[in-house]
Amino acid sequence: MDPKKKAITAAVVGTALGVGGLVVVAMPASAGDAPKLPAISAEDLVQSVMTADPGPFDGTVSVSNDLGLPAVGGAIPGMSALNVDSAHVFSDGTGKAKISLTNGASQETIVRDGTTVWDYHSSNNSATKTTIPADVATQHDMGAGELADPATATKELLAKVRENSTVSVDGTANVADRPAYELVFTPKPTERTLLREIRVAVDSQTRMPLRLSVLSNGTTAPALQVAFTDVKFAPQSADLFTFTPPQGAKVTEKTAKVDDQTKALADEAKQDTKLVGDGWDTVITGKVPADALSGKKPAGASGAEGRNADPQQLLSRFAKRVNGTWGSGYLFTTKVGGAVLTDDGRFAAGAVPEQVLYEALGQK
Results as ranks from 00 to 15, higher is better:
A256S: 08
K257F: 00
K257C: 02
V258L: 14
V258A: 12
D259E: 03
D260P: 01
D260A: 15
D260R: 14
K263T: 15
A264K: 15
L265G: 05
A266D: 09
A266I: 09
D267R: 10
E268T: 15
E268P: 04
E268K: 15
A269W: 06
K270I: 12
T273K: 06
L275Q: 13
G277S: 01
G279N: 02
W280V: 01
D281K: 03
D281A: 00
T282V: 11
T282N: 02
V283W: 02
T285K: 02
G286V: 04
K287D: 04
V288S: 02
P289L: 06
A290S: 13
L293S: 10
G295D: 10
G295T: 05
K296A: 14
K297N: 15
A299S: 09
G300D: 03
G300V: 01
G300Y: 01
A301D: 01
G303S: 02
A304V: 07
G306K: 01
R307A: 14
R307Q: 15
R307P: 08
N308V: 07
A309T: 05
D310Q: 06
P311H: 04
Q313G: 04
Q313R: 09
L314N: 05
L315F: 10
L315R: 05
S316V: 08
S316Y: 03
F318M: 03
R321E: 13
V322S: 12
T325L: 11
T325W: 00
W326I: 04
G327L: 08
G327I: 04
S328T: 10
S328F: 03
S328Q: 14
G329T: 08
L331G: 09
L331I: 10
F332V: 10
T333G: 04
T333E: 15
T334D: 12
G337P: 09
G338T: 10
G338R: 08
G338C: 11
L341Y: 07
L341A: 06
T342E: 11
T342M: 12
D343S: 14
D344G: 12
D344R: 12
G345M: 12
G345L: 11
G345K: 13
G345V: 07
F347N: 06
A351W: 12
V352S: 09
V352F: 06
V352Y: 09
